[in-house]
Design a protein around this nucleic acid. Structure first.
Lengths: 209, 209
DNA sequence: ATTTAATTTTACAAATTGTAAAGTTAAATC
DNA sequence: GATTTAACTTTACAATTTGTAAAATTAAAT
């Protein structure tokens, strides 16, 4: 005789501790993904290895992130929204545009330094995979609008209000504060710290300040 | 009765026309690889599709290039050693360092402009795959030594012979003449041509000239 | 004790890269 | 023109990896 399958009458159920555990696993997976990505690169990072390093099964990775690129997008979001970037708030509230500019450069130098290898991989993925590339555009956009604001405020304060020149300066500042340039400069200098020391003066000279 | 298999007594054989045909196929494959790479990126480029577009079988691609990355390395070599770069000879033979510098910037601006999408992909692959990354280092090295020469000659002519400052300038010039910076600047400006127009002045200001 | 849902286990399909062998074809040589 | 040579194709197969799906397990919530 079959056991009659009882129809589940829905009962309220809050996740509580189970959600905590799940979040911890998510965090472990992202941490492992970061290490593996930095160490061996995107091609060598398989979900099998990632799951093994995280202490879960491959299917759990799928359940939590949907796909391989899903893991990377989550990792990118985690980095972008947390460590180091919250200081941009303060920077953008400074009254003096020169102080803003220094803060802007400083925050991004620190950010690129801290996450250099990871961003190199992530930008690499964006460069080879147009679909993933769109993920980065939003971030770039925010840096662009910050650069625009800084230079607009400055040009209105100094009175030199040529729209064209400001647009050109914005482009230059945006390019000089990009990860790509920072990484290239750090490579040329021999260290990210040296690049961070060089950058502020370089930017000012390039902007003609 | 079996046909006795005749032992091949080696006879001289020069490839002649067959080599030509083979080279044409190679060229067709590389051309198709470039288009596909630029259009859809590295992940979407499969050997199956590449073979189809080139009018050969997948195994022929393997025979000619060994592997997928083999195709890319061959493509990279083809670009790096041919189109546009031969002008660097002339540039480096100029007597005046300022002329050299202008030529240096000009040649690379044109080179990056011409191969922008392709280099974006190639640098992307290098960024995600450490093994492939080493392929780019040699090229970067040649640009670095050119930058070093230009600035050394210049500092010895102007008399300002501080080794430290020259080293710093070399690093800056190397970073400002990198593909990564050019691509970022072109993105900010809206076009590669505009970036190419901006770059010479920017470099001079950044180098304090 | 029962219900719930996260996680694991297990199984499978599809795509892709890579390898290998036999057969085909056309150029080069005699 | 017949034979040799090697590029190329055809065909087949193995390995890896991603992605999907269902049942079984487990531990938390009720």
């Amino acid at each position: 005789m079959k056991k009659a399958k009882v129809l589940p009458c829905k009962r309220p159920y809050s996740l509580g501790k189970r959600l905590e555990l799940s979040d911890k696993k998510k965090a472990r997976i992202l941490a492992a993904a970061r290490l593996l990505l930095e160490k061996d690169g995107f091609l060598a990072l398989t979900l099998e290895i990632l799951a093994g390093e995280s202490g879960v099964t491959r299917q759990t990775v799928h359940n939590l992130f949907g796909s391989k690129t899903g893991v990377l997008e989550a990792l990118f979001d985690q980095i972008a929204f947390s460590s180091g970037m919250e200081q941009m708030r303060n920077v953008m509230q400074q009254p003096d545009p020169d102080t803003m500019l220094d803060g802007f450069i400083g925050v991004f130098s620190a950010f690129w330094t801290k996450n250099r290898l990871l961003f190199r991989r992530i930008h690499g993925i964006a460069a080879i995979d147009p679909e993933f590339g769109s993920v980065l555009l939003a971030r770039n956009q925010r840096r662009l609008s910050a650069a625009t604001r800084i230079l607009s405020v400055r040009s209105s304060k100094t009175g030199e209000n040529f729209a064209e020149q400001t647009a050109q300066r914005v482009a230059v500042l945006h390019a000089l504060s990009s990860f790509e340039f920072f990484d290239a400069l750090a490579e040329s200098c021999g260290s990210a710290d040296q690049a961070a020391r060089l950058l502020p003066g370089l930017v000012k000279k390039a902007l003609g300040m």
